[in-house]
Nucleic acid binder design. Sequence first.
DNA 1: CAGTTTCTTGACCGATCGGTCAGCTACGGT
DNA 2: ACCGTAGCTGACCGATCGGTCAAGAAACTG
Lengths: 182, 182
Amino acid sequence: MTTASELRDVALREFASAGYLGTSIQAIADRAGVSKASVLYHFSSKEALLDAALSPAMEQLAAILPRTAQLAGSPEERTGFLVEFVDLLLEHRLAAQVFITQSGALGDVPVVARAQELIRHIADARPDQTLDDQVRFAVALGGAAYLLAQAGSYLPDSADDARLRESLIRILGELLAPVPVP
Amino acid sequence: MTTASELRDVALREFASAGYLGTSIQAIADRAGVSKASVLYHFSSKEALLDAALSPAMEQLAAILPRTAQLAGSPEERTGFLVEFVDLLLEHRLAAQVFITQSGALGDVPVVARAQELIRHIADARPDQTLDDQVRFAVALGGAAYLLAQAGSYLPDSADDARLRESLIRILGELLAPVPVP
DNA sequence: CAGTTTCTTGACCGATCGGTCAGCTACGGT
DNA sequence: ACCGTAGCTGACCGATCGGTCAAGAAACTG
């Protein structure tokens, strides 16, 4: 583990728990056991550190984005996309937490603005859908991210990632493919 | 509109859009057209201003909290509770946005800690439920709040509050009362 | 009118913020 | 052995933060 990558991990944890504005470079330096000046040697600014911390998750989000159309396909295709999406959230849950909770306040930071654009692109990609469909999509996306961000607070310890993954995939599947009311 | 209540409204808007830490007392004073010292005359501290801005929503949340049990009752009872909950989110959407996006970073502020306790109390009130039930509840709560917080960004302008309300009540109802899979 | 309370303000305070910089150490290449 | 570079640091900078305070303006009370 290089110093730079360790700083990136420490920063992501701090940004997720205390917020970007609530985390000082000094605090990151202390947790990593280096000086503040050393942090700014590896990352030219606090914003560059945020960019480095979020970029891996953003690239993966961009990678699965074109497959959003699978949501309108067969049940197998739909489940396939949901598995990818839930796994993305599980693997990059801290980055997702930062984005969900702070994208509003950090809209002028390039990496956050890019993520907003990606999400908006997903929402706009299917203009023919009804308001109900859009509400379903937003509740599923925001709800899943909120759940993972707060999992430690509101769910029992017995909810390990594997069980959570299965449950989320099943429930998001139901939510996005509602059983028609007769 | 008294100066104090106007300051409370301005502050809530700023806290929701830029975040509590991202909003300075000076910025609130400027938007309200008064001096920084005047803000601190009406509210003894920035934290007291946050408390005043969130308290109305918190009281209403506490008021509907005992009726959470209705979610396990008849369809009519369940819909009745959902109507109250969605109306609470719609009426206090800025406060809900502040809580959803910043409760993690503001956990040591009394009014936020109290709100966290209320939500946790709701989650703990029904210990017999399965993990799926808990996931449904968290996705519904977090998803609905996220949707309203980001409504301006991700939903078309045609989505007025009345239509949003109907859609949310219907979809949350489906989510919390799933059709059993045969 | 005088007296008192409410409101508002500019000046000021210590603390902390993000960021800069000169200099120190350690080490691989020649 | 020499040198260049990478890594790291303490000292320092201007700006802004939340908060205090004394004093003036305004409005109610007798």
